[in-house]
């Protein structure tokens, strides 16, 4: 059929958002999450993942920019079978800030 003529991509905003995901801990979970953001052309600025006290679960922290597609992204993340919960935090969340000394 015929090609799409799309509207230009929305510029992302500058406000940062921190997403906290609780996920099943097995190889492939990170692949599902990173792939979802990549294929929907949504940039992930930062990512952290560690097992939780219950080793069957991991917690993933994602740093993204606020964007009008973020709502849709969160809904898509929630649909992933291995994602158990998604919480949204503002830029004031310190998890990435405290790591900055390892990067600068």
């Amino acid at each position: 059929m015929i090609e799409q003529v799309a509207d230009p991509l929305q510029e992302s905003g500058f406000a940062k958002v921190v997403l906290e995901l609780e996920v099943n801990n097995h190889p492939g979970v990170m692949s599902h999450i990173c792939n979802l953001f990549a294929r929907r052309a949504f940039n992930v600025e930062g990512i952290l993942c560690m097992p939780m006290s219950d080793p069957r679960r991991s917690r993933i922290w994602l740093l993204v920019f606020e964007d009008q597609r973020l709502e849709q992204m969160v809904l898509q993340v929630e649909k992933l079978v291995d994602v158990l919960s998604v919480r949204r935090h503002g830029a004031e969340h310190e998890v990435f800030e405290r790591l900055e000394k390892f990067f600068y």
Partner: peptide, 10 residues
Amino acid sequence: TVPVTKHNFL
């Protein structure tokens, strides 16, 4: 098949 399945397993 991650992007083209509802879910997948190895």
